[in-house]
Amino acid sequence: MDVLSSRVLIHPKDPEVSTAFYRDTLGLAIDKEFPGGTVFFLGHGSLEIVGKGETGPSPDVALWLQVRDLPATLEELKAKGLTADRDARREPWGLDEAWISDPDGTRIVLVEVPEKHPLRTDPR
């Protein structure tokens, strides 16, 4: 298999509310819009809000979003009225993580890779 591109698709209960959340609350940049959907940039991937879902999210699925500064990101989101589901903490595997949810309850893991962690490739 030769994968050229990838994206995660979310079928929200209310597409307008979810699109506004990812665009306005999280501040994700829009890659493309089309009738019935919006695609957002997610670093090396994409997130597509499309159609309308009925069943809601699974607790077995989460979005993993690496951010440069987790405390600053949480403060920015708090200023926009978003409360974290779980505050930031260092995990046993060495990453700093906090959890938030989208309007349908999809878990979003916000991750900061600490300075000395082997995953860290950007020295900033």
Rank of each mutant, 00 (worst) to 15 (best):
T106P: 05
P59A: 08
A79R: 12
K52F: 03
R68Y: 13
P57Q: 02
R89G: 10
G56T: 07
P71R: 02
P103E: 06
L65M: 12
T55C: 13
E91I: 06
W93S: 02
S101I: 05
L77V: 02
T106M: 10
G81E: 06
E54R: 10
A88S: 10
G53A: 06
R86S: 14
D104W: 04
D104M: 07
G94H: 00
L65I: 15
D87H: 00
L63A: 00
A72H: 08
D85K: 13
W99G: 12
I100A: 04
V67L: 04
T83E: 14
D60A: 15
E76A: 15
A72C: 08
R89Y: 14
S58M: 09
E97N: 09
R68K: 15
P103R: 02
P103C: 04
P103K: 01
K80N: 08
A62W: 01
R68I: 11
A79D: 11
G56Q: 01
V61S: 11
D96T: 11
E97H: 03
D69M: 02
R89I: 14
V61H: 05
I100M: 01
W64C: 11
A88E: 10
W93G: 03
G94R: 11
K78T: 14
L82G: 05
W99R: 14
E75G: 10
W93Y: 09
P103G: 02
T106I: 09
W99V: 14
L77D: 01
K80W: 03
W64V: 12
A79E: 13
G56F: 00
R107W: 11
E75L: 11
D85H: 08
D85R: 12
P59H: 05
L70I: 04
W64G: 11
A98G: 05
D69E: 10
L95N: 04
V61M: 12
G105D: 01
K52R: 15
A84C: 08
D60R: 13
A79M: 07
G94Q: 07
A62M: 14
T73V: 08
P57C: 02
K52L: 06
